[in-house]
Amino acid sequence: MAVQASTTPKPIISVIGLKKSFGEKHVLRDIDLDIYPGESLVILGASGAGKSVFLKHLIGLLQPDEGNVIVEGIDITIAPASECLELRKHIGMSFQEGALFDSMNVFDNIAFPIRRHTRWSEDEVADRVHECLSLVRMEGIEDKFPAELSGGMRRRVGFARAIALKPEILLFDEPTTGLDPINTAAIARVIRHMHDQLGVTAVTITHDLNLAFGIADRLAMIRHGVIIAEGSPDEFRQNPDPYVQAFLNGEIPADEEDFV
């Protein structure tokens, strides 16, 4: 990376020496990662490796024990709350379980960030909501409440809500887990489209290697609280680390054999 430093643009997100523990459990030990404007980064790692915890640090939902997270030039670990609030208007995030507001129907859920942060007319809001819903292939469920949806449907509505405001930075926590192949392809298409046409920066967590290699400009893998591998799809496939190879091939890594 160092050699390219002169040609690569300034990172839009810089994570420096990030450490986070919950009690005795050291989830993130020392994470350094730069994310560049317009790139699509995929984060891989075993279940429980700390991917969701990492993603939550990027938007300030969790405060690190040590280290800094710099987003668009602002260090969100020390910046005043009002500045962080302003910054979050440029960021969309979809949560692993959808996190839809269950007091609102699907329409109001997706309209929420739009109504909150724009002065669009209700017609414009409705247009955008329908557009987002059709992107995730969910037309016609505007009036349903989250409790009436399946897990996969909720996740897709959460995805639609995250992209509603066309944010510059998108954070997706396992957007396709539990979805059928067709809907997974649809989500992949949306992410690729936002990345290609709108130039957004996307950080996606996924266990789905097809999706990962389908959307990634770059991949990174978290294990034991550090990033053990990082690189373009081709570099990543060639990575000599036995754990990475085991992960990509769906095998049990040699150093975890005793646990089975």
Partner: peptide, 18 residues
């Protein structure tokens, strides 16, 4: 409490709403 444990509070925060 339900909103907290189902991450709806986090979602609000993420949507730049205190």
């Amino acid at each position: 409490g339900t909103m907290r444990v189902t991450e709806q509070v986090d979602a609000l925060y993420a949507m730049a709403t205190e």
